[in-house]
């Protein structure tokens, strides 16, 4: 039956089933640790998984002042994906609970290509299986096929500033978009520009030992680019996750050129993928 055409569209004319391209199916979910840290979560998938992660919903940011405010912001992001061996993947997740101290009940959800993860099709009967001309499974009614929470294909968050000012952490360092539905109980697939340690110079003094180099003092804050949600608003923000102080003879090189971070998003409804 080579060459047979199957194209099904939804009410808005979007392609939803086709023999031309392979879809994704829901494989599993895994818990995100609730407390602050950078965590590696192992998952199984044949071929590269598509990871959706829960975002904290209606979590209050810090009431602190100055840089303490950046350190108290709450958010979660997926910051890395790498192979852990045959059909094993390591998902790196950053969690910053901010002042709340804990972000319980969050998960990552793992989706994989149906042709690779169900090469003979699922065992559910009766069933509808659709194969491409190349005999790859592309749709399987026995699998929870990936479906999005509405048409969010053009959803993009743009974060323009590399780092906030030391004493003005909310100035131009956060961004948000409004989605056409509540972000409660939703997960997103998104990438971020992740960890950045930024040294703020706050003073200098002459060396005591006759050395020609001035001693520069720095307050270093490590920022992560994290997501959170409030109502139907999805937020991307620079959250400070740690800080330290150092002194360096002659001063440090500081990154001064930085491009905006673009984060294109897909959103799913968690209740569809239990």
């Amino acid at each position: 039956m080579t060459g047979a055409v199957l194209n099904v569209q939804n009410s808005r004319g979007h392609l939803t089933v086709t023999r031309d391209y392979v879809g994704y199916g829901y494989l599993s979910k895994a818990a995100i640790p609730a407390t602050q840290g950078i965590y590696d979560i192992w998952v199984s998938c044949v071929g590269t998984p598509r990871i959706f992660f829960d975002i904290p919903y209606n979590v209050a940011d810090s009431s602190g002042q100055g840089y303490q405010q950046a350190l108290g912001k709450a958010g979660v992001a997926m910051a890395g994906l790498r192979s852990g061996g045959t059909n094993a993947w390591i998902v790196t997740v950053i969690v910053n609970p901010g002042d709340s101290g804990s972000l319980p009940g969050l998960y990552i959800r793992v989706f994989g290509r149906v042709d690779l993860n169900w090469p003979s099709g699922s065992s559910r009967v009766p069933n509808l299986k659709i194969w491409t001309d190349a005999q790859k499974l592309c749709f399987d009614a026995g699998v929870r096929m990936l479906k999005l929470a509405g048409d969010t294909y053009e959803t993009e968050l743009i974060l323009t500033n590399a780092v906030p000012g030391l004493y003005d952490p909310n100035n131009n360092c956060d961004a948000a978009i409004t989605l056409p539905f509540s972000m409660a109980n939703k997960s997103i697939a998104a990438q971020t520009r992740s960890t950045l340690s930024y040294p703020y110079n706050y003073g200098s003094y002459p060396p005591f030992d006759g050395s020609p180099e001035e001693i520069y003092q720095y307050h270093i804050i490590t920022y992560n680019t994290l997501f959170a949600a409030s109502g139907s608003q999805l937020q991307i923000k620079r959250c400070g996750t740690s800080d330290s102080f150092t002194e360096v003879p002659g001063g440090m090189g500081v990154v001064t050129t930085s491009k905006p971070a673009y984060s294109r998003l897909a959103v799913i409804d968690n209740t569809k993928f239990p």
Binding site: V8, T16, T18, Y21, R144, M145, K147
Partner: peptide, 16 residues
């Protein structure tokens, strides 16, 4: 309803 081609939006794999 696990899937509904009349209402759902999906993503297809193309290349990596």
């Amino acid at each position: 309803v696990l899937f509904d081609s009349w209402t759902d939006d999906v993503l297809f794999f193309v290349a990596e």
